[in-house]
Amino acid sequence: MSIMINKDTKILVQGLTGRTGTFHTEQALAYHGTQMIGGIHPKKGGSTWTCENGDAKGTELPVFATVKEGRAETGADASVVYVPPAGAAAAIIEAIDAEVPLIICITEGVPVRDMVNVKARLNDSNSRLVGPNCPGILTPNECKIGIMPGTIFKQGSVGVVSRSGTLTYEAVFQTTEAGLGQTTAVGIGGDPVKGTEFIDVLDMFLDDDETKSIIMIGEIGGSAEEEAAEWITEQAANGRSKPMAGFIAGRTAPPGRTMGHAGAVISGGKGGADDKTAAMEKAGIVVSPSPAKLGETLLKAIG
């Protein structure tokens, strides 16, 4: 089992014909035959995209003018968005209107105003958005959506959820080294306004039988970690819990500065690492002080 995506997930690529979309689609096709089944381009509908590099060289995908058409033709149940920042929100909204169940936006640099509008459109829709500004989702040996390096994964029992891309890789790498492997890794993204929060993913990991433990990686800014910690405590009171390890990046970050991710900023004395760590520890999560000891810390949490 896994969450959100598996070997049956059929994926459309919004922004397939661009450089980034092409590169990562080639990589995804080569990853255990991930079902990339078509691309979207408003002016190139009816044409064919050909994979020119890697193990899936020669694979041809149809290009559709609209998401709606692509979905009708292919029965896609997910779309991944590589469209540049200025057009990313419109691409997401097009996928929401086409009722794509799972939309994953990799694009970094989407204006907050656009995301506030997207978020309002997501309410009462049939879609879930993951991202933007995220590395995507990967279920080992089954399906890779986004930009995570497939080689570090190993099928196993850990659910990984993170606001940071490269720290997701650290958690995956270290749990692979520890012999645990992963069920699914989800990068929820580093923006202040995003489609999916920690709680959404944690809920799915708690429901998933094969996920035996969870790593949650947060960072400074906002209060999503505190809200997740409170939620975890409530769930545990109802008998729903799994061993968890955590990490918060940005203990040494100066207040008021945006640390690379648009959402990573301590403002008005709020969003610091210490408050988040304390909230997570209170909820029973074993928080590692070192990003190099995520695997080790999870083994400790499992006991």
Partner: peptide, 26 residues
């Protein structure tokens, strides 16, 4: 460092071993 999260975490681990980072750089 590559990646904002890893760049912050790298600063944190330098501090953890008793030194101070001169910068954040992703």
């Amino acid at each position: 460092v590559n990646g904002a999260g890893l760049a912050m975490a790298t600063m944190d681990i330098i501090k953890l071993y008793g030194a101070e980072p001169a910068n954040f750089l992703d």
